[in-house]
């Protein structure tokens, strides 16, 4: 189990960050997207190789209209 943008998500053991991001329709080609795991930025080139531990907190962010 991991937490993706505040929602609990069940993933197979040893799942990659890239696999988790597929749950919200994000892949390495997605533009204007950035991801942090447990408060650290993970560059997109590392998403596939990054193995998520149980309880990992993943924040996937994109541009929103704002001041």
């Amino acid at each position: 189990m991991i937490v993706l943008n505040g929602d609990r998500v069940q993933l197979p053991e040893g799942a990659s960050l890239l696999a988790a991001l597929a749950n919200i329709g994000i892949d390495e080609e997605s533009r204007g997207v950035a991801v942090a795991v447990d408060g650290e930025v993970v560059p997109r080139t590392h998403w596939e190789a990054y193995t998520l531990h149980d309880g990992a907190r993943v924040e996937a962010l994109t541009a929103m209209q704002g001041g």
């Binding site: 533009r31 962010l61 541009a63 929103m64 001041g67």
Partner: peptide, 19 residues
């Protein structure tokens, strides 16, 4: 622009990148 959580899929990554 601000940064906010990506919402659950609606129309694919293209739509979310639209801003």
């Amino acid at each position: 622009v601000a940064l906010r959580r990506i919402q659950a899929p609606k129309g694919g990554a293209g739509e979310r990148g639209s801003l």
